[in-house]
Design a protein around this nucleic acid. Structure first.
Lengths: 342, 342
DNA sequence: GTGAAAGCGCTAACAA
DNA sequence: TTGTTAGCGCTTTCAC
């Protein structure tokens, strides 16, 4: 029956102050635990008033007066098709969280208009900065709308490196993948690379070659065959791989490996006995559940997100190149077996 | 050299007003396109001042004064492992967008503490409402922190239906999946269901039975075999399925179907010639790229997200049951073939 | 120790 | 048609 009835008026600091018989500034001090010396007694009264009234600070008002918001924006080009963007969001959100920030996300589906309006909406909400991410590692041209705002690129980079970027270390990933095979004694190691020009293609190839060198092997261009980077590509390449006499194959990604598995099965061949294989990406649904489970190298999407917010918040620096390369950890499973002398 | 140099002071409405030689309220009117009749001339001057100064409205201040924020919160239990949560976010974000809202997302990894603090953070940011979502369809107990806030459940529901929920229509999905097989003339249709108790298990089974009825077939419990709901489960069940003499199988999900494919291949059998199969979920990476591509029924995650915000914003009503069931559309591909008389 | 008061950037009466 | 003014909920000097 009091005036608190009816319209669910929101409880403000003033209400708390009145209830506790103190001033708003006192309430503010206890709520924010500022150093201010507030008497035990008053402090208690405020606490009780807060509980009683169910007061909840208004972050928006706070942001307004302090001038600094606790928002971080994340714009993604495709959050729905793969779990990749999800992992980036996941990592970014957790790290943002740890620093008291909340994540505003927008999906653009690669649409420039959507992108521009997403960015401007974020800017209007005074985000502290924006993470611009793509679902596969690539070069992007920076949306004009981003100019002037604090930005970091995640899983992509700009041509000139004007803006800090956090990307996977493809070279090392390719190197480790190949080494998993080499260190088991394989010497005829084929590489089913993607035919799509991309940092992944170039980087992994460099890693492959480097690993070969490490083991004193000479690079044989004939052993790398370019395919469409999915199941169909892997499936179609079985014949060629077999003709190469390879005992092991490094696949550009897990999907290619999956296609390869299928093709091999159709010929009555077995992984890893007839062929050892290693993938890339560590796409859980696939890699962990193939028969046998696929050894692969993980694309560290959540780490990308995490590092992204760290450099955005200035906790971490991108190299002088403007690019921070995050390690792709190998995840060994059961698709590799020691080479038999033949 | 002007005072605009140095610290990047943010341009406010007052600055624009001063530059344009009008009052802030005039600026406000033109910025917001309120009905107010502002002279062409003043309007123009304001426009120019805005461009010149690079003014950008401060949404936070606006929210503060109008009392209504344009935020929607989305808390998810697992945004990284599957594309499912991503699709929910995607749909929710797009729909929110359309209505001028931005999405605040938080991942909780099922951790209650994280959940509570996520929710309270959102509430402090005065979100208009919260979407609470899970990555697989299930019953949830409502986090206490949600009490009092506008909430809608997405892909989950509360026991008593106290809170509106948007969920997939499992029964119809199961029905349609089965019908895809039946309408091709199959009469011995097995069902590889999950053994995990869940609305998906019960619903799809009901749908399966209903479809059988529609075709005047009697339900044979022996034809439904419960398996672990992933590749391993499907793989392990091949023998049993074959023993059943089934000519077609409805798999609880695409992953089970994938396992089934593998098992069949190992025995030199072929989909769909030896067995027609239909999955559920429409997990793109799998379904679209199996050999042959898998006919399945889609789990409409982005629709769930979309409807979620619609009921949150009051644009749409959940049924009187408090549950809005979203249709799961069949997506035919090439894993089904007409039954041959044998 | 605590409070008064100014003001963050904006909207919305109300005046003019 | 345009300007004045009073806040929105909060932080933060600066007095007392």
């Amino acid at each position: 029956m009091t005036k608190n009835e009816g319209v669910h008026r929101t409880v403000t600091m003033r209400d708390v102050a009145r209830e506790a018989g103190v001033s708003v500034s006192t309430v503010s001090h206890v709520v924010n635990n500022t150093g201010a010396r507030i008497g035990q007694e008053a402090r208690e009264r405020v606490r009780r008033a807060i509980d009683k009234l169910g007061y909840r600070p208004n972050a928006l008002a706070k942001n307004l007066v302090t001038g600094s918001s606790r928002f971080l924006g994340l714009v993604a080009d495709a959050i729905a098709s793969t779990p990749f963007a999800g992992q980036i969001i996941h990592g970014a959100q957790e790290e943002a969280w740890r620093h008291g920030y909340v994540l505003l996300v927008a999906n653009t589906d690669g649409n420039e208009a959507a992108e521009a309006s997403a960015i401007s909406m974020m800017l209007e909400h005074k985000v502290r900065g924006i993470l611009y991410s793509t679902w596969y590692h690539r070069e992007v041209k920076l949306p004009a709308a981003l100019a002037g705002s604090d930005t970091v690129l995640v899983n992509c980079y700009s041509p000139q490196g004007e803006v800090p970027a956090v990307v996977p270390d493809e070279v090392n990933g390719g190197h480790d993948a190949t080494r998993m095979l080499l260190s088991e004694g394989h010497r005829r190691v084929a590489f089913l690379n993607t035919r799509a020009l991309s940092p992944a293609r170039e980087g992994r190839l460099r890693g492959y070659r480097r690993a070969l060198e490490d083991f004193g092997l000479v690079f044989d261009p004939a052993k790398v065959v370019d395919v469409q980077p999915d199941q169909e590509g892997g499936y179609a390449a079985v014949g060629e791989i077999l003709a190469l006499g390879a005992t092991a194959v490094f696949c550009h990604n897990d999907r290619v490996a999956m296609g390869l598995y299928d093709g091999l099965r159709d010929r009555g061949l077995r992984v890893p006995d007839d062929l050892s294989v290693v993938g890339f990406d560590n796409q859980e649904v696939i890699a962990a559940h193939l028969q046998p489970p696929l050894s692969t190298v993980a694309l560290p999407h959540d780490e990308l997100g995490r590092h992204g917010v760290r450099v955005l918040l200035g906790i971490e620096e991108a190299e002088q190149t403007g690019r921070l390369e995050v390690n792709c950890p190998p995840v060994p499973r059961r698709s590799i077996v020691a080479a038999t002398r033949r």
